[in-house]
Amino acid sequence: MAGTEPSFFVRHEFLIRRLHSLTGIIFGGYVCVHLFVNASIVGGAQAFQKNVLAIHSMGGILPLVEWVFIFLPILFHMFVGIGITVGMIPNNKNYPYEANWRYTLQRATGLYLFLFILWHVFQTHGWFHFDWWLNVAERWGGAQFSPYNAASSIGLIMQNMLVSLLYALGVLAAAFHLFNGVWTAGITWGIWTRPHAQANALKVCLAASVLLGAVGLSAIWGARKIGSSEESIKQAEAIENEMYTVQVEAGLIPPTEHKRAHHADSDETPELTATPASDENPTHPSDED
C-alpha cells in the first residue's frame, strides 16, 4: 500500500498544466482571428466571403495549420480542462470575492464552451468529412455551413433565435474565458507578480474580453441580418457563387463541392458539381467557419 507510484498524470501534472495554459493561449489566438473574420459579415456577404476564401486559398497546408493551431490545442485544452474542473470545490457563497467569482466563472464558461464547441463544430462543419458521415450529420442538423457560401449558409443557421442566443452565450463565454485565462496565465508563468501589476493586467484583460465579446456579437448580428429574409439570402448566395466561380477559374482555390451549399432550389454552376473526386483529404475536418 505504502509507496504506490503516483499515476502518469500526477507525475507530469506540472507539464500538463503548463501545456494546458499554453494551448489555451494558442487556441485563444485563433479564436480572436475567427471572431474578427466573422465580424466582417457586418460589411456584407462579399466582404465575409472574401475573407473565407482567402483562408481557403491556403489549400493543402490548411489542414496542417488547423491541426497544429486549432484542433490539437483545443482538444488537449478541453479534456485537461474538464479534468481540472472536476476537482474544484466552489465556495462562492461563503467567499463572495470578485476573484473567486471569476475562478468559478472561468470553469463554468469552460464547461459551456466544451459543449458549445462540440455542438458548434458539428453544426457548421460536421466533425468529419467522410461522405457517409456527412450524410448522417446533415440529417441530424450538422455540417450546415458551406465555406464557399459562407454568409448565406450561416445566415440560414442564425435564422433560429435559440441558436443565435446559444451562439451569443458561446461568444461571450469565450471572450471571458480567453482573457481571464490570459490573466491567470500571467500569474501561472510569473509575468505579473505584485498585486498592483496583477490589478492593472486584469483591467487590460477585462477590457479585451469586452471588446472581443462585442466583435463576436456583431458577427452574430451580421449573420442574422443576412438570414433575415429569403431575399437577402438569395442575394448573398448569388454573390458567393459568382466569387467562387471567379476564384476557381483563377486557380486561387480548389473546386470543392462539399464546401458549397446544396439547396433544393439551387441550380447554379452544375458543371462544377460533377467533380466529387476533387474533394481532397475527405477525412480531414478542414473547415474555417
Partner: peptide, 11 residues
C-alpha cells in the same frame, strides 16, 4: 500548478 487563481487565500 494546482493553483486556480481564485485568490481567496490572500483575501
Amino acid at each position: 500548478q494546482v493553483c486556480g487563481n481564485a485568490q481567496n487565500c490572500v483575501a
